[in-house]
Nucleic acid binder design. Sequence first.
DNA 1: CTTTCATTTCAAGTTTTATTGAAATATACT
DNA 2: AGTATATTTCAATAAAACTTGAAATGAAAG
Lengths: 108, 108
Amino acid sequence: MNETDALAAFASISSATRLRILKLLVEAGTNGLSAGEIAAAVGATPSRTSFHLSNMSEAGLVTSSRMARQITYRLDFAVVGALMRYILEDCCKNNPTVRACCVTDGGC
Amino acid sequence: MNETDALAAFASISSATRLRILKLLVEAGTNGLSAGEIAAAVGATPSRTSFHLSNMSEAGLVTSSRMARQITYRLDFAVVGALMRYILEDCCKNNPTVRACCVTDGGC
DNA sequence: CTTTCATTTCAAGTTTTATTGAAATATACT
DNA sequence: AGTATATTTCAATAAAACTTGAAATGAAAG
């Protein structure tokens, strides 16, 4: 992950709707969800949802594949992980205070 | 960290200049840097730098304190850590793929 | 090959955010 | 008090992102 990619990812998840889509796709796991299911879940119009999904796709956060008439969107967990690593290492130089928050039993 | 705070933090670090300021303040550590030093380092005008710094301050990422004529800005490492934890736990439900990227020897 | 369903694209208007330079505030020095 | 330094605030402009609804695309079914 480079700076340009990280900036696009941050911009993408700084929208309340898109962050909600991300959380939804985390729960959906590797199966993903169709654009229509996502639209229904977040209560947005199809065109608005499509706009947000292409934003997330351009940011590399999601992948899409057509299944018959529907298009399935899946979260790219590796990209989210790479973003975490970018903050932790490239930005924060492995600062111990920041790093402590990333362990399950961390005092944070 | 709640969703509102996380959204503000993401929006803040989705600007190239502000991400650069964050990295600068990571290296400065607990000493921090004055607004003027930051402006010089990022090559921005004082007013523009001030704008970005108040954005980061509203997002909770930095703290400020006046030292004589200068105002020192410091990164709030705990807030950055809380943001990491928010992505990892609240958003990603501790997904193992994402979590693997947060350990030094992680296969990521 | 027309219809239906799922999704995307487009154009228009609205809102938000960024930039610039000048003026204002706060502190220190003489 | 008056001047210089450091930073912020303000108003105006410019640029980017969001929203809406209508039209277009792609795929399946009759």
